[in-house]
Write a protein that binds this DNA or RNA. Structure first.
Length: 270
DNA sequence: AAGTTTATTGCCCTTACGTCA
DNA sequence: CTTGACGTAAGGGCAATAAAC
């Protein structure tokens, strides 16, 4: 049921409807700040929350398995392999800071515990990554509810889920770009080859024209004819295809205009 | 109704950390 | 043990969008 653009987007379809800004789940969102309704905390409360967490998680080694069950339980780390980040607050964190209560009191996850000193990074566990991956296969963007639910089930902060999806989309796009480049490269090589072949054919025809006998006896060229009036070389009148060389990706031999494979991807804003 | 402000999110670019050879 | 390459989580900036004013 899901579109298989996935698998790192190795198809050339480039159809990422959900990726389209205009159709992003964002539109489905009630702008009446869901964070406000869900986590109506002020900056101060998030700061408080941060401080509490800092003490709360003090002593938990970053990027290390929680040593004790206590640590695991109290930190609310979902998976034993998951580790704790301590990135200091920023604009996004502030946005998400309201989630503090949800995620640090009830879930116990914090990224702020020693934020003032270090900037350690969380490494998601395999389980977490796998679940995120599965989720990404279903939707490559998340609406706030999905994000919250996923974050909760994974024991992560919504911001982390958001970031993961963002980076995942970027990876998908990068992969797709690589595939596109490869495709264009092959296409270019093919056109170059075809061009070379056609030039050669023109030369041969011109040479033959110099010897009328042969010219009259020859079978019509496979791909080109000479216009009787202007004597220019062109495709055969009844030919539906303009070249014998198969174009890449099994395309028709009439050279199609390259579809804009970057539409909606490279310049989504313009 | 039209224009402005505000809030929210996505994308891009970049940085910094963790891992591995 | 050190180092460089690579993957990736996360920060910051900007644009787009919709709701509120």
């Amino acid at each position: 049921m899901m579109v298989e653009k996935e698998d790192l987007g190795l198809s050339l379809s480039l159809s990422f409807p959900e990726n389209n800004k205009k159709s992003s789940p964002f539109n489905l969102m009630h702008k009446k700040s869901w964070t406000d309704s869900l986590f109506p905390s002020s900056d101060r409360s998030s700061e408080t929350c941060r401080v509490e967490t800092r003490t709360f998680l003090k002593g938990i080694d970053v990027n290390r398995l929680p040593e004790t069950a206590d640590a695991d339980e109290e930190a609310g780390v979902s998976s034993p392999n998951s580790t704790i980040s301590s990135v200091s607050g920023n604009k996004r964190s502030e946005r998400e800071a309201n989630n503090c209560e949800e995620n640090e009191t009830s879930r116990g996850i914090s990224d702020e515990e020693d934020g003032e000193t270090s900037k350690k990074k969380l490494r998601l566990s395999k389980d977490q990554s796998a679940i995120l991956e599965e989720s990404f296969k279903e939707h490559n963007t998340l609406n706030p509810k999905q994000k919250l639910a996923l974050a909760k089930s994974l024991g992560l902060r919504p911001r982390q889920v958001e970031v993961w999806f963002q980076n995942r989309r970027a990876r998908t796009k990068l992969k797709q770009t690589e595939v596109d480049c490869e495709f264009l490269k092959r296409w270019y090589e093919n056109l170059t080859e075809e061009n070379r072949r056609l030039h050669k054919e023109v030369q041969e025809l011109r040479a033959l024209k110099l010897s009328p006998k042969l010219y009259m006896q020859m079978t019509p060229p496979t791909t080109l004819t000479t216009c009787p009036s202007c004597e220019r070389v062109g495709p055969p009148p009844n030919s539906s295809s303009s070249g014998p060389t198969p174009t890449p990706m099994g395309q028709a031999q009439t050279r199609p205009m390259p579809f804009n494979i970057w539409a909606n991807t490279l310049h989504p804003r313009s």
